[in-house]
Computed example of a mutant assay.
Amino acid sequence: MSLSSPNNKLLGIHHAAIICSDYEVSKHFYTEVLGLKVIAENYRAARDSYKLDLELPNGNQIELFSFQGCPERPSYPEARGLRHLAFVIESVEEFADHLVASGVAVEPIRVDEYTGKKYTFFSDPDGLPLELYEYN
């Protein structure tokens, strides 16, 4: 099959994988605060690690892993590699208010100079930079 074949095109992002330092704290954050649906939760005894599969309403997924002794993120957020994970949302203001009410620090809402869309940043329990980005 050639690379130009219509059957060999990227169709979207299936999942993002996140490694956390405290599994129960991060599980609560992603399921209760962000409201993601649990698809599957597995404990892998050989690795002494959990893998939690979470689903967003559009079918995209997040895999939440717990590994012992993993290094911290080197800087915020300009470390080489994945800069942040952005969630599309209808109302940045409403969800930001929900996050604040849940005890999550949220940066002031900004407007993207190129698209005119509202966005803001917040962090998960391990300091992973997350973004809310306006859909409409």
Rank of each mutant, 00 (worst) to 15 (best):
L36N: 01
K37V: 09
V38E: 15
V38L: 09
I39N: 15
E41G: 09
E41L: 07
E41K: 12
Y43A: 10
Y43M: 06
R44E: 08
A45N: 13
A45Q: 12
A46C: 00
A46M: 02
A46I: 11
R47I: 06
D48R: 13
S49A: 15
S49K: 05
Y50P: 00
L52Y: 04
L52V: 07
L54K: 00
E55F: 00
E55N: 07
L56G: 14
L56S: 05
P57G: 05
N58K: 10
N58H: 05
G59I: 05
N60F: 05
Q61L: 11
Q61N: 00
E63P: 03
E63Q: 12
L64V: 06
L64C: 10
F65D: 07
F65P: 00
F65C: 12
S66F: 13
F67T: 02
F67G: 10
Q68A: 09
Q68D: 12
G69E: 13
G69P: 08
C70Y: 10
P71F: 12
E72P: 04
E72Q: 06
R73A: 09
R73L: 14
P74Q: 11
P74R: 03
S75N: 11
S75P: 00
S75A: 01
P77S: 01
P77C: 01
P77V: 02
E78N: 12
A79E: 15
A79T: 07
R80K: 12
G81D: 13
G81R: 14
G81S: 07
G81M: 06
L82Q: 08
L82W: 02
R83A: 04
H84L: 01
L85Q: 05
L85S: 06
A86L: 12
F87S: 03
V88Q: 15
I89S: 01
I89M: 03
E90R: 01
E90N: 08
E90L: 05
E90C: 03
S91V: 07
V92P: 04
V92N: 03
E93P: 03
E94H: 14
E94G: 06
F95T: 10
F95P: 11
A96T: 07
D97P: 08
H98N: 14
H98A: 11
L99T: 01
V100I: 10
A101R: 09
A101W: 05
S102H: 02
S102Y: 04
S102R: 13
S102N: 13
G103Y: 15
G103K: 13
G103L: 06
G103Q: 09
G103N: 05
V104L: 12
V106P: 15
E107I: 03
P108W: 02
I109E: 14
I109A: 11
R110Y: 10
V111T: 15
V111I: 15
V111A: 00
D112H: 09
D112I: 02
D112S: 04
